[in-house]
Structures are given as C-alpha cells and as structure tokens.
C-alpha cells in the first residue's frame, strides 16, 4: 500500500468514525466541556453525531461568550495547543474532512487527465503566508467585537461564529447529511448564503488547484503557530538529495522549502500539511524522513526498489 492509499483510507475512516460519532469517545467529548461541545480537532461541528469540532468553533464560541467563559477559553486554547504540538498538521493531511473532499476532487480531476493550475510562487506565498494570517486575525477581531456586551442582539447574531458563516464546510456537510436524510431538511438549510458562495469557490478551487483551501485555511494557520515546538517534522539528508525538484513539483500546497533548504535537518514549512507526499515521491533512499519526536515513522525509498517503480496510475 502506498502512502497515498493509506492516507486516503485514514481520511475516509476519520470522516466516518469521528464525524459520524461511531467512535465510542462521544462521552469523553461531552464530559468536560459544557454546552455539548466536543474536543477541538480538525473535524466539523455540524455533523449530527460528531464528537470532534474544528479548532476554531470552540474558540469562537467561548471568545464570543466574553468574560464569563474565560475558564473554558483557556481550556480550549490549551487543548488546541496540545493537539497542534503533538499532531502538528497531520490533521490537515490525514484527517481533515475538507482536505479529504479536496483530495477526492483531485482524484476526479486526475482521472479526467486535466492538468492542475500552477500558482506562481509569489501568489502562493501571498496566500499561504500573508492572507492566511490576515484571515485568522480578522476572525479573532470579529469575534471579540461580538463579545462586547452593548452590541445589539441582531448584530451579535450576524457576527456570531464568523468562520462558520463563511466556511464551505458547514453547507457542504449539512447538504450532504440532508441528502442522505440523516438530518431533517429544515436544519439542512440553516447556513448563510455567503457560505454557499464560499462552497462554490471551494469546489471550483479544489478542482483547479490542489489543496486550494488548505493554502489559507485559518485552522491550519492556527496549528502552524506551534511549528517550532511540534513533534512531527520532515527532515532532509542534504548529502543524499539530488536536487531533482520532485518534492517541490509534487507538493499539493506548493511548498518549496523542502527543495530549497540546503542545510538539511528539519525542513518542515509552516504551510506544509504533512501529507508526506514529497517523501513518497522522493527517489532517493532515506533522503526525506518523517519524524515523530526523533523516531522515523516514514522515509523515502529508492525509486527502483519499490514494488512498482512507476507511480500508480491515477494515484497522487
């Protein structure tokens, strides 16, 4: 099984088990956070049986709650920090349902043999560095404003949970669940028009640009803030590197640091979604490695020694 096949399986498993509440951890999720909130992870609040939220939902929720909920805010922040430190952005590459959908769309595109759009490095840098953090800061600002007590109730309702108002995940999952008749039709329509527009952008973007959303997703941005201390990292052995550029070419989010960094050692970029596709594509034995607290969990293999020397048809 190649890494991309494994990843696809895990993504699917996460979507089904975590988001459809089939994991027996529902009780844990409910126990220590009030108001039916779940563990912050990269999943979505709007799954009927979900036990894991996204990072942003509980943060937004408690931030909007003002002073009264500070204890919970601290609790959630600590949880987000722990998650980000332990798992890094493995969530993005291996568990996030939005990432999964984007990958599925990529597979469909590949099946049709349509080339993806290459973003110019300057534009990609703008998206992945500046724009991503701008979105994150804006969200925090909007939530903070909505928490000011004398703001009118109507305003507050409009500003409540600002990410969910624009996130394509909410309409996507609600519509899917509505279509599968898991939710009553009324609830399925409970999303803003703006988020429907965002869903359109998301789907079109994912079809033409690989992992389009991940390039500026604020949750990824939040997780990346812990880049310096996280336990999962990608390392490179410069001496083994032939500078063939495969890592840069095959990266779904356009990371160039793995290719460019010549000092070796840790090469993880803050925009990396840790899908380890570069490691899978790297043709040199042991040149790229994924480490978890110093332990190698995955490494590149000599291309010609693999069972199939050629990348499988239709796979990433």
């Amino acid at each position: 099984m190649t890494a991309s096949q494994l990843r696809l399986t895990i993504q699917f498993t996460c979507l089904v088990l975590i988001n459809a509440g089939l994991f027996g951890v529902a009780a844990i999720g409910m126990s220590f956070l009030p108001s039916g909130l779940a563990i912050p992870g990269l999943a979505c609040h709007y799954f009927k049986h979900g036990v894991v939220d996204c990072f942003m939902y509980p943060l937004e929720y408690y931030l909007a709650g003002g002073w009264e909920s500070w204890k919970y805010l601290v609790m959630v922040t600590v949880l987000v920090a722990i998650m980000s430190i332990v798992f890094g952005r493995l969530f993005c590459g291996w568990a996030c349902p939005l990432g999964f959908i984007q990958d599925l769309i990529s597979y469909a595109r590949k099946y049709l043999h349509i080339a993806y759009l290459k973003l110019a490095p300057a534009i990609n840098d703008l998206l992945t560095f500046r724009f991503r953090y701008a979105v994150l800061i804006l969200l925090v600002l909007v939530v903070s404003i909505s928490s000011i007590p004398f703001i009118s109730a109507e305003w507050r309702r409009n500003l409540d949970l600002p990410l969910c108002q624009v996130c394509p995940g909410k309409p996507l999952w609600l519509l899917l669940q509505g279509g599968l008749q898991i939710l009553p039709p009324k609830a399925a329509l409970d999303f803003s028009k703006l988020s429907l527009v965002m869903l359109g952008i998301f789907l079109a973007g994912a079809f033409s640009i690989r992992r389009f959303w991940c390039r500026f997703c604020p949750m990824g941005g939040l997780a990346s803030l812990f880049k310096g201390v996280r336990m999962v990292s990608i390392t490179k052995d410069t001496q083994k590197c032939t500078k063939c550029g495969l890592c840069a070419r095959s990266c779904p989010v356009g990371v160039t640091e793995v290719y460019e960094q010549d000092e070796g050692g840790e090469v993880t970029s803050s925009r990396c979604v840790q899908c380890f596709h570069c490691i899978q594509m790297c043709p040199e034995e042991g040149c790229l490695k994924a480490d978890f607290v110093g332990q190698t969990i995955y490494k590149s293999r000599a291309w010609w020694q693999r069972a199939s020397a050629l990348p499988e048809k239709g796979l990433e």
Partner: peptide
C-alpha cells in the same frame, strides 16, 4: 535520475521529463 510523474497529464509529464534532465 528517474522521470517520476506525479499526475499523468500531458503538462505534468512534460514538466517531469524536463526537470529530470535539468535539475539533478
């Protein structure tokens, strides 16, 4: 150095071929 193609589209194959001869 091998030509390793990520996606078997014309564009990606040609880029893969081109890069294999230059970069490594």
């Amino acid at each position: 150095d091998p030509v390793r193609v990520d996606e078997w589209t014309m564009d990606d194959m040609l880029t893969a071929v081109a890069e294999r001869y230059l970069l490594p």
